[in-house]
Design a protein around this nucleic acid. Structure first.
Lengths: 185, 185
DNA sequence: GGTCAGTGTTTTACAGGTAAAACACCTGTT
DNA sequence: AACAGGTGTTTTACCTGTAAAACACTGACC
């Protein structure tokens, strides 16, 4: 019950009591204040948000050593995994970020010699971006470390739960992508 | 198979083929390029990250109407659910953000009359922040909409899966919080 | 009683993202 | 051939977060 056991539990005592995660404590607090509300969604969405935040922080570690941010690595990774050149627009869609953000990252990455760009011969609006050899080597060098790091972060989950979790998240993601991305069709 | 079915699948064709989520397509691409690597972690971490991004975008909708960002709402929510005053430091821990960020948000929120601050009488370094009546009313007004919105986002999951997912995420979160937060104890 | 390490909060300088406008270019129409 | 509207990309202005330093204060020790 010391204040330093957990960084987030300094005085949010409910968090510490019944060995749950931090989200469980938060939900408990909300239920005490608004007993009439259905706090069910929090238990999923709050946890996803929190897990994502913690994982991002953790994943940054191997990348930082290479001087890359996660969005930068995502961009390089998109080029590597598709195997061919991509236009800035395609990169934006592939990495789920805005075109403007991609423009900035490309400027940065091509300054470091990790990607190259050439103009399209037919349509002079579009550019084609590809990995340089250095860029490809960097991605290939980092990826195993990255995956090892991720595997370590998940090592608490044993094999049956792992697949269950992946499947459930996949199902949710299909729903969300249909619900939140398609509505422009 | 048209290019406009999904915003992210314009040319990442693997994504569209076997009705998976976008992450499944990405993983497939990586496996094709690096068949030797264990891409298992991606299926969980990639999906969590992606779900979090989509949910955040979606959740912003009800908040935006109130002119609040999610971090701002989290701060107000922390004050509401704990029921008492919090210091800036406690708010930072409670909302998992940096002290500097809290300072900025407090400036903004107290300018809007949603929170109040008073200095501690004993220790003149610390401040105590509390919700104003307007702040409390705002939170209480938004929260039901927020939860309804979240419930709608999750409506694709039926009741058995819901609890499974919440439980699995809870387990993972306990691991992550122990692994990534405690290591300073 | 003064100093010094430590703690709570804010400031500073800066990196990175976004929305909206600007730009450059293509294409179908008249 | 000129133009209008659409598309791919970049620029601009701005906002928010962060790390590190600065600041303000406490409390314990000599």
């Amino acid at each position: 019950m010391t204040a330093t056991d957990r960084p987030s539990a300094t005085q949010g005592d409910a968090t510490e009591v019944a060995g749950g995660d931090t989200v469980a404590g938060v939900v408990r607090q909300w239920r005490a204040v608004h007993p009439d509300l259905d706090t069910g969604p929090m238990e999923i969405i709050g946890r996803i948000t929190r897990c994502a935040a913690l994982l991002q922080q953790a994943e940054d570690a191997p990348l930082r050593r290479a001087g890359l941010s996660r969005p930068e690595f995502d961009l390089l990774g998109a080029l590597r995994r598709t195997g061919h050149e991509l236009t800035p627009g395609e990169l934006a869609r592939e990495t789920f970020s805005s075109g403007a953000a991609v423009t900035k990252r490309l400027k940065q990455l091509s300054g470091r010699g990790l990607v190259d760009r050439r103009g399209d011969t037919r349509d002079r609006r579009v550019a084609h971006v590809r990995l340089t050899d250095a860029g490809r080597d960097l991605v290939d060098g980092i990826l195993p470390e990255q995956l090892a790091y991720e595997a370590a972060a998940l090592s608490g989950l044993r094999s049956p739960e792992r697949e269950d979790l992946a499947a459930l998240l996949g199902g949710l993601l299909v729903q969300l992508e249909g619900r939140l991305s398609a509505p422009r069709a």
